[in-house]
């Protein structure tokens, strides 16, 4: 564990807290893409199938946290504050993302096993999971400040992971090509958002 990775994980945690706070305080999930949240839940569930495999207490607790909160957010959006969610704004076709990521995971993976292919799938899917949210934002044109904070925290989390990989490459010879390529694409998508955001 290094500084970049820990800070990245904490930013990731913070993004989720910001999102939960926004929904609870405003009692509304307007401006939030259910499809993006659904994709994140799929990402966490398919990636953390190795939950029984012990790495560290930190690792296990974080995995449980991510799975639990992502499903809880789906519950808030689909059940508790259902009336505040406007599906007509959330029109991105996620079937294509899911299909393309699954296909890529079946072809490009480290080993062709159930757990490993789903892990790879989750890496590819996380890279593009924000697209419905960005699409929704570009359609409505305006984002609440809190939604922007949410996206900022998520973007910072991704940027810090890039620095973490550079750090790990030099300090422990760590290399993970699948994660790096997907991560670079994911960070580029956020950079695009920041660019649009600051231009406005």
């Amino acid at each position: 564990m290094n500084f970049f990775r820990l800070t990245a994980d904490l930013m990731h945690l913070m993004s989720i807290f910001v999102l939960l706070l926004k929904i609870q305080k405003t009692r509304s999930c307007s401006g939030i893409s259910f499809k993006t949240q659904l994709l994140y839940a799929v990402v966490f569930v398919t990636r953390y199938l190795d939950l029984p495999k012990w790495i560290s207490l930190y690792n296990t607790l974080m995995k449980i946290f991510f799975i639990a909160t992502s499903i809880y957010i789906l519950y808030l959006m689909k059940v508790k504050f259902r009336a505040t969610y406007d599906p007509s704004q959330d029109t991105f076709r996620i079937e294509f993302l899911l299909g393309a990521c699954l296909l890529l995971a079946l072809v490009f993976n480290y080993s062709f096993s159930f757990i490993e292919v789903l892990w790879t799938f989750s890496i590819y899917l996380e890279a593009v999971a924000i697209l419905p949210q960005l699409f929704m934002l570009s359609r409505t044109g305006e984002a609440e400040t809190i939604t922007t904070h949410y996206l900022f925290a998520l973007g910072a989390y991704r940027g810090l992971y890039l620095l973490n990989w550079i750090w790990r490459f030099y300090t422990e010879n760590y290399a993970d090509l699948i994660v790096w390529i997907a991560g670079a694409i994911q960070t580029a998508l956020y950079s695009d958002f920041f660019y649009i955001y600051y231009k406005k």
Partner: peptide, 10 residues
Amino acid sequence: EETPAKHDEL
């Protein structure tokens, strides 16, 4: 080694 340490990140 079936699974190397590569999946130690979140």
